Computed example of a mutant assay.
Amino acid sequence: MALWDAIEQSLTAWQNAGSPDITAVQLHITAEAHTYWVGDNPALRWQHPLR
């Protein structure tokens, strides 16, 4: 998937979720990765591996 396509998909999902503010973002930190998400929509879930 092209970078802009991923950004557009995330923006559309965020708008469809009612444009939640920053307080809706959840974060899970492990030694392997940081995972961020808003609600249960997979398009609003990002994982940043640390290794």
Score class of each variant (00 low, 15 high):
12 T>K: 05
25 V>T: 00
16 N>H: 06
5 D>G: 03
20 P>V: 02
36 Y>L: 13
1 M>Y: 06
39 G>Y: 03
36 Y>Q: 02
25 V>Y: 12
41 N>I: 00
25 V>H: 12
25 V>C: 06
48 H>G: 04
38 V>W: 07
13 A>Q: 07
4 W>V: 00
5 D>W: 12
8 E>V: 01
12 T>N: 08
15 Q>V: 01
10 S>T: 09
8 E>C: 02
51 R>E: 14
34 H>W: 14
1 M>W: 09
13 A>Y: 08
35 T>V: 08
40 D>G: 10
48 H>V: 08
47 Q>P: 01
20 P>D: 09
29 I>A: 06
39 G>W: 10
31 A>V: 02
6 A>K: 14
10 S>R: 13
12 T>H: 03
24 A>I: 04
29 I>V: 09
9 Q>W: 04
46 W>K: 03
14 W>F: 05
6 A>G: 07
14 W>A: 01
22 I>K: 04
31 A>K: 10
16 N>Q: 15
25 V>F: 05
43 A>H: 13
17 A>R: 00
51 R>G: 04
2 A>R: 12
48 H>E: 13
35 T>K: 09
29 I>E: 15
12 T>I: 13
45 R>K: 15
28 H>P: 01
29 I>K: 13
9 Q>D: 13
21 D>I: 03
7 I>R: 15
45 R>T: 08
4 W>Q: 14
27 L>Q: 04
51 R>W: 07
28 H>G: 01
18 G>D: 05
41 N>S: 06
18 G>K: 06
32 E>I: 04
2 A>V: 01
21 D>K: 04
17 A>F: 03
36 Y>M: 09
22 I>D: 14
51 R>L: 12
29 I>R: 12
2 A>Q: 08
24 A>H: 14
19 S>Y: 05
16 N>A: 11
29 I>W: 14
23 T>D: 10
5 D>C: 06
46 W>P: 00
35 T>I: 09
24 A>Q: 09
37 W>D: 04
46 W>C: 02
4 W>Y: 12
15 Q>D: 06
8 E>M: 08
39 G>N: 05
2 A>Y: 03
49 P>R: 15
24 A>N: 00
48 H>S: 02
22 I>H: 13
22 I>Q: 12
30 T>F: 13
14 W>T: 00
15 Q>I: 00
34 H>S: 10
21 D>V: 10
12 T>E: 11
21 D>F: 06
2 A>W: 07
36 Y>D: 05
19 S>M: 06
8 E>N: 09
39 G>D: 04
26 Q>E: 13
50 L>D: 02
23 T>G: 03
8 E>D: 07
36 Y>K: 01
28 H>E: 09
45 R>W: 05
18 G>T: 08
49 P>H: 14
49 P>E: 07
40 D>E: 14
13 A>P: 00
7 I>F: 15
33 A>Y: 12
38 V>P: 04
18 G>M: 04
42 P>Q: 11
50 L>W: 15
51 R>F: 06
36 Y>E: 08
50 L>S: 06
39 G>M: 05
31 A>G: 04
33 A>V: 07
28 H>V: 00
31 A>S: 07
30 T>A: 14
50 L>R: 13
35 T>N: 11
22 I>G: 07
40 D>C: 11
40 D>R: 11
4 W>T: 02
29 I>T: 04
50 L>N: 12
28 H>L: 06
4 W>G: 01
31 A>R: 14
